[in-house]
Amino acid sequence: MSYSSSTFDTAPRGGAPLRGSGWHRLGNALKTTVLLAGLTALVLLIGQKLGGPRGLAMAGFFVVVMNFVSYWFSDKIALAMHGAQPLAREQAPWLHEMVEELATRAKMPKPKIYMLPTRAPNAFATGRSPKHAAVAVTAGIMEILDRRELRGVLAHELAHVANRDTLIGTVAATLAGVISYAAQMLFWFGGSMLSRSDDDEGGGLAGAMSSLGLLLVAPIAATLLQLAVSRSREYGADATGAELSGDPEALASALMKLERGAELMPYDRAPATSHLFIVNPLSGRAVMALFSTHPPIPERVRRLREMGGRSWQRGW
C-alpha cells in the first residue's frame, strides 16, 4: 500500500492541538497521581513494617533513587533490555517520513526510531518527555501490518509520548517492583525482622501477623494499581492516537492482527516491560484477564470503531 501524508485528511492539521486536552486530560492526570501516590504509600508502609523508623527512611530513600533512575534512564534501559538498534533513515525512509508527519501533527519533536530484532509483532514507546523519546518497532510488525495499519500503531505510540504515559508507566512499574521485592525479602529472611520490630513495640503475635498480612497483600495491591495505570493509559492512547491519525479503523485492524501475532509468537525477553508494548507480548491465554497489563483487545477495537463512526459524522 502506498502512503502519503494527504491520504488521511481527518486528523488535526497544521499542528492543531488534539481534542484530548482540557478536563479529560486533567482527570486522567489526577487519577494517575492518586494511583502513583498509593504505590508510594505502600512502599513506605512496608519499609516501616520491616524496619520501623529506620526502615521507613530507607524505603523513602530507595523510592527517590529508583524514581531518579526511572526518570533519567528509563528509555536507555528499556531499549537495551530488548537489544534495540537505531533504524537509519536510509533503511526505511518511508517509516521516518511517517513518524515525522505524525509528530508534526502532535506538535512534538520527531522521536528516535529503533528496531527490535524479533519476529514477534509489536511496538512500544519510551522516554521521559517528547524531547527525549524513542519509538521502537519489531521486525515482525513490519511484516504483518500494511502501512496504513502501521501508521495507526505509530500514532498510538506518539500519543503515549505526548501524554507522558511512558514516564508514568515506568515509575509505576518501578514502585510495584520495589514492593514485590520487599515481600520476597520477607520470605528470604523468615520474618525475623517483623517479629523483632513488633516485640520492641509491644505488639506481640497479633502485630506480627498483621504485618505479615500486609506484606502478603501488598504485592497484589501494587500489581493492581500498576495495571490500573497501564490499562487507563492504553485506552487514552488509543483514542488520542486515532484522533492524531484520523483513522481509528486502521488502529483497530492493527490491534486484531497484533493480538493474533502475540498468541502465535509470544515474546518474553523482558516480562517486566510487557506493559510498554501496544499489545501484551506474553501469551495472553496464560494470564488471567484481571492481571493483564493491557485492556481486552475486543473492547479496545469496539471503542475505536465507535469513535470512528462519530468522527466521520462530525467531519474532522
Rank of each mutant, 00 (worst) to 15 (best):
L87I: 07
R19F: 09
G315H: 12
V137P: 00
E249I: 06
G191W: 02
G47V: 01
Q85K: 11
A37G: 15
L225V: 13
G15H: 10
K49W: 05
L264K: 14
L282G: 10
V135W: 01
G241D: 08
P93C: 04
T40A: 15
H160G: 01
M142Y: 01
A182Q: 13
L304F: 07
G169T: 02
M193P: 00
Q226N: 12
W316Y: 06
P271I: 07
Q184D: 11
S283L: 14
T166P: 04
V161Y: 00
A182M: 15
G308Y: 05
D75C: 05
L42S: 09
A133W: 01
A123H: 05
V137D: 00
R19S: 13
L158W: 02
A221W: 14
A159D: 06
L290H: 02
G60C: 06
L225C: 07
Y114F: 15
A206F: 06
W188K: 14
V99W: 02
A37Y: 04
R89P: 00
A134H: 04
P281M: 11
P121Y: 10
P271E: 08
A206N: 03
G20M: 11
F187W: 15
A84G: 11
F68C: 07
W72I: 03
E299M: 12
A182G: 12
Q85I: 08
T293Y: 02
D146F: 12
D9N: 08
W188F: 12
M193I: 02
T174Y: 05
T7A: 11
K112Y: 02
Y235I: 00
R19I: 10
S311N: 06
R147L: 13
K31W: 09
K31T: 11
V171Y: 01
T240I: 01
H96Y: 06
L150K: 03
W312H: 05
A182T: 04
F62L: 14
G52C: 08
F124Y: 14
A37K: 11
V63E: 03
L216E: 09
L304T: 07
G140M: 03
A250C: 09
Y114I: 07
S292K: 13
V217I: 14
M256Y: 02
E157I: 05
N280Y: 12
Q48L: 15
R164G: 02
R119K: 10
K31E: 12
R119Q: 13
A155S: 05
S292A: 09
E149M: 11
L35F: 08
E201C: 05
G47A: 04
